[in-house]
């Protein structure tokens, strides 16, 4: 039995490594890849290799399935564009939808759930109204949650389209307002790059910072392997096209108060996927990195999450990062007392 997610990381990093897998290990690897939402990326990565027939069929399915996911994501993005046509200001696509809209390597085979967009904070009331007019509605109309989102979060409460059943998250910045770093969404909007159809994506440095904020500064590393695979894809492609990329990234990360996080993500990505990063960046806290890798690979050959204690530590950390202690206590108390 495979004991953790290392074979998945190895396969992404070095496709030839799968030649060592036995039949049963293939089944385990596939369960792990599905659980980590990396089956599509893996399928693309292993294209052209000589694989067992049943495995090849599973990967062919994954490739087909993600092709449809891609089409749907682009369609959904276009729906939002039409809904927001008369709202002044940029609509910036985020995460997976942005990667596929821009044709980036990080988008190839990537799973995409909700549509995430970034708009200017002062346009939120108009955006909200336009989306409600166009058929989106609130997912969970709960007064506490609603108020919480509006006062402390970086996005509106989630909305879902009543006919297409697709969710949209409308962001006005990239981290909860209660988190310590204060990124500069204004700069992200200013520098956003227009695509042919009138939608925008973030500039490469901002896109990378957002990817990092998402995985390192706002969460418990669940789905971390996928998010760091995104990071690997983004920085590898951006730095290949722009020799100044790392330097610009450093400056921009500083501005968003995310430099430490960006460097840490780079170190982890380097350790996991062999990402080429600037030499002086590869220094990190060994203990912290080892603990994080232990967390990131916590999955067994049945696709189950393992290492409960390690995961708990990161879960607590995620709440700690998200809000100050007294506020956290109040929040958890309210949540606890609710039926």
């Amino acid at each position: 039995m495979i004991k953790d997610a290392t074979p998945l990381i190895d396969a992404l990093r070095d496709p030839q490594s799968v030649s060592a897998l036995g039949d049963g290990q293939w089944s385990e690897l596939i369960s792990i890849a599905r659980a980590e939402s990396l089956i599509g990326s893996l399928a693309h990565r292993l294209r052209g290799l000589d694989l067992p027939d049943r495995v090849q069929a599973i990967f062919d399915d994954a490739i087909d399935s993600h092709e449809l996911v891609r089409t749907q994501a682009l369609w959904e993005a276009d729906c939002s564009r039409r809904a927001l046509f008369y709202v002044e200001g940029k609509t910036v696509l985020m995460k997976g939808t942005a990667y596929v809209a821009a044709g980036l390597a990080a988008g190839v085979g990537r799973s995409i759930g909700d549509l995430d967009i970034l708009v200017a904070k002062d346009k939120l009331p108009l955006v909200e109204e336009a989306l409600l007019d166009a058929g989106w509605e609130w997912v969970k109309p709960d007064p506490y949650d609603d108020q919480y989102y509006r006062e402390h979060m970086h996005e509106l409460p989630p909305m879902i389209h009543r006919e297409r059943d697709q969710m949209i998250d409308v962001h006005h910045t990239i981290l909860p307002l209660t988190a310590k770093p204060m990124p500069d969404p204004q700069k992200m909007l200013e520098d956003a790059v227009e695509l042919a159809d009138g939608l925008f994506i973030m500039a490469p440095v901002d896109m990378t910072c957002h990817c990092v904020a998402h995985v390192m500064a706002d969460g418990d590393f669940a789905g971390g392997l996928r998010n760091l695979w995104d990071f690997h894809g983004l920085v590898t492609e951006f730095s290949a096209h722009n020799v100044q990329f790392w330097q610009q990234l450093e400056q921009r990360a500083q501005r968003h108060q995310l430099l430490q996080h960006v460097r840490w993500a780079a170190v982890l990505s380097h350790q996991l996927y062999g990402t080429a990063i600037p030499e002086q960046w590869s220094v990190g806290s060994k203990i912290r990195d080892r603990l994080t890798l232990h967390r990131l690979t916590a999955r067994d050959g049945y696709g189950r999450e393992t290492r409960k204690l390690t995961r708990l530590i990161f879960y607590i950390r995620s709440h700690w990062l998200r809000m100050p202690p007294m506020m956290l206590a109040k929040h958890l108390w309210t949540k606890f007392r609710r039926p």
Partner: peptide, 12 residues
Amino acid sequence: EDDLVDFTVRLE
């Protein structure tokens, strides 16, 4: 015989 499957079901 080969333990090569399409899906894993977990009952826990």
